[in-house]
């Protein structure tokens, strides 16, 4: 008998992509997407149930579908998407609690896969260059999405203790990037003038949206328990990434970044919360060797390649600078060639 997988957060882009990826998998018989709103583009081969994970209804959904696997992708990263920070926290924290409570009462459940984030490691000057899964944060996140994710992981660990028969995997993904995904970071890099932190240059890793989905799919299909860091190979520093967008940047002292950021990005999804400012200041790196060894997953696209694909998809890139330099190159060549002749 094939597997029945329930995916939370299925109406949003990444959740939808995950539903699609799983519905193509021969081992998976049924994919059930769950979200509070219907998906913009429904996946033909999958079912969709409109349900709120903050609400005990989710237990009935689990029982009715007899899902053996739950993929929890319902944690929201930016408060704009959730309609305010309070609502975001409720979706993330209460939603996860409710979902896990339902999971605990679902005898058919064999596996839980949770999409978490590398931001649970926080960001700060006392961080090691790369975090492995066993390291604890030196500067634990105190607010926002990152803190929600820390709490979510805590609930998941509690669940794993209470249901030792369920295989639990947590994927800590670096920032998603790519031509289609919309995140606080893609919005940030799309600003006409990108504010950065004066005197610091954060190290960043990205994961291409397709690679991130593949990592989650693999964890779901293979059922390997554990915590895994997921990121594209290599690093970009913030100044370098901004230069690759071709957009001008404005370095301001870190304390002013939220003010300047909000002035430059009115009504956008860009996040200038305390935690995000720390990330834009100190950056972060995660070690992905465990995912490669245990999960057999290595991102197809490096951090730089994923970023390039994002730029292509959004029509960004240093084209102006390139053309200026091409012109300069030709001038020099013409002049020196003319001189020799």
């Amino acid at each position: 008998m094939g597997r029945v997988v329930l995916v939370t957060g299925a109406a949003r882009h990444l959740g939808g992509q995950m539903v699609k990826a799983l519905s193509r998998d021969p081992q998976v018989e049924r994919v059930v997407g769950v979200d509070v709103v219907p998906p913009r583009r429904p996946v033909a081969a999958a079912e969709f149930i409109r349900a709120d994970i903050r609400n005990p209804v989710i237990g009935k959904v689990l029982q009715a579908t007899e899902a053996d696997t739950v993929v929890h992708m319902g944690v929201i990263a930016t408060s704009v998407q959730a309609g305010g920070r309070a609502s975001m926290k409720e979706i993330n924290v209460i939603g996860t609690m409710q979902l896990l409570a339902a999971c605990q009462k679902a005898p058919a459940l064999q596996q839980l896969v949770v999409k978490s984030t590398s931001s649970v490691y926080g960001a700060g000057p006392r961080d090691p260059a790369l975090f492995t899964e066993d390291m604890s944060p030196k500067h634990p996140p105190t607010s926002g999405w990152a803190k929600d994710s820390v709490e979510v992981e805590g609930f998941v660990r509690g669940f794993a203790r209470r249901r030792p028969d369920v295989s639990v995997s947590i994927l800590r993904l670096a920032n998603f990037i790519g031509p289609h995904v919309e995140t606080a970071m893609t919005e940030y890099f799309s600003l006409p003038l990108v504010p950065t932190v004066l005197g610091f240059d954060a190290r960043m890793q990205f994961i291409h949206e397709e690679d991130g989905i593949e990592a989650l799919r693999r964890a779901t299909v293979q059922g390997v328990a554990g915590v895994f860091n997921i990121a594209g190979d290599g690093m970009l520093v913030l100044s370098q990434a901004v230069r690759r967008t071709g957009r001008p940047s404005l370095a301001v002292p870190g304390v002013l970044l939220p003010v300047v950021g909000r002035a430059l990005a009115p009504a956008r999804l860009v996040d200038f919360s305390k935690e995000q400012v720390r990330f834009l200041t100190y950056g972060r790196g995660i070690d992905t060797s465990r995912a490669e060894e245990v999960l057999g997953f290595r991102a197809q696209r490096s951090t730089a390649e994923a970023f390039a694909d994002f730029l292509d998809g959004h029509g960004l890139g240093p084209s102006l600078a390139e053309s200026v330099f091409d012109g300069a190159d030709n001038t020099v060549k013409a002049l020196s060639g003319g001189g020799r002749a």
Partner: peptide, 28 residues
């Protein structure tokens, strides 16, 4: 304008181009 130093000039130009367009690598 006509000296054989223009390859050096092109190299310098290439350097500035790479820096300004972020086309260089950093390690982890």
């Amino acid at each position: 304008p006509e000296s054989p130093s223009s390859p050096a000039l092109l190299r310098a130009l290439d350097f500035v181009r790479r820096r300004l367009t972020g086309d260089y690598e950093v390690d982890e």
